[in-house]
Design a protein around this nucleic acid. Structure first.
Lengths: 134, 134
DNA sequence: CTAGTTGCAAAGAGTTTGCATGGCG
DNA sequence: CGCCATGCAAACTCTTTGCAACTAG
């Protein structure tokens, strides 16, 4: 797992791109089509896999394909994320009640929750009143 | 949305297949390759989309593609599901503490949780002691 | 110099769509 | 009979892989 890693222009620019959009969920396509990044698509996929493995970014799986998000100093590993099924926004839920949930599940249901991999789906505040549809 | 729907042999057999595996998470491939079901792959995808739309089955999104699960009398719409990242088992979490979680998120964070679409990831009881690896 | 990385193009998986035929109601 | 469903194959999207050239350390 801890293989030697080289520092290349492509890798740096992809990481920088994530760093400049810390809250965004980016698809591989977003990266590939971004004008700031010059890298072949195979390289992008390979870099995303590496960065995910190293924990610098996180990978989510959605209907349209994988999404990647910057993992700033690991802080997002400690709270849940909500994703709006309507507009796609990610809400960071830094809340004690929710934090106790993983403890409860661990203690009472013997299941070690991986908060960083979990996304809770629903409809966000903005989309609730005028819930037109998809 | 509520278009007229015909009852066909293919549709019935797919639904019957789900009914006979109420807890299984099935991929489109599982259905297509199942010897009990005679239907072209396009038909399977179309039926799965219809059934999901009608609420008879639920759709999850995983790394390898979409997974579908039988939605018996809607009872699974009221509790969370845990999925083991190691062995893939789905655990149904019918628990009051967890039920209050969605209420909490709705009341305090103004986010209408869709329990039926949410899967909490982690490591299940069986995979925790001998957590070899992926 | 060595080993990891890149880029292109081809290959693959999963899913969708076009169109003529078939079947439910 | 009208309309939805089916089947087949082609099309598409997202992702992976092979391989030769390249580059960081």
């Amino acid at each position: 797992m801890a293989e030697k890693k080289y520092r290349t222009r492509q890798r740096d620019s992809i990481l920088a791109f994530f760093a400049s959009h810390p809250d965004a969920c980016l698809s591989a396509k977003d990266i590939i089509e971004s004008p700031e990044i010059e890298a072949g698509e195979a390289t992008v996929f390979r870099c995303l896999a590496h960065l995910t493995e190293e924990g610098l970014i996180k990978k989510y799986t959605s209907d349209e394909g994988a999404l990647y998000q910057y993992n700033r100093t690991g802080e997002c590993n400690h709270h849940f994320h909500l994703k709006c099924l309507h507009c796609g926004t990610i809400v960071h839920l830094d809340c004690d009640v929710l934090r106790s949930v993983s403890e409860h599940i661990g203690a009472h249901h013997r299941f070690a929750v991986d908060v960083s991999r979990t996304v809770i789906y629903g409809i966000c505040e903005n989309c609730q009143p005028n819930r037109t549809n998809e």
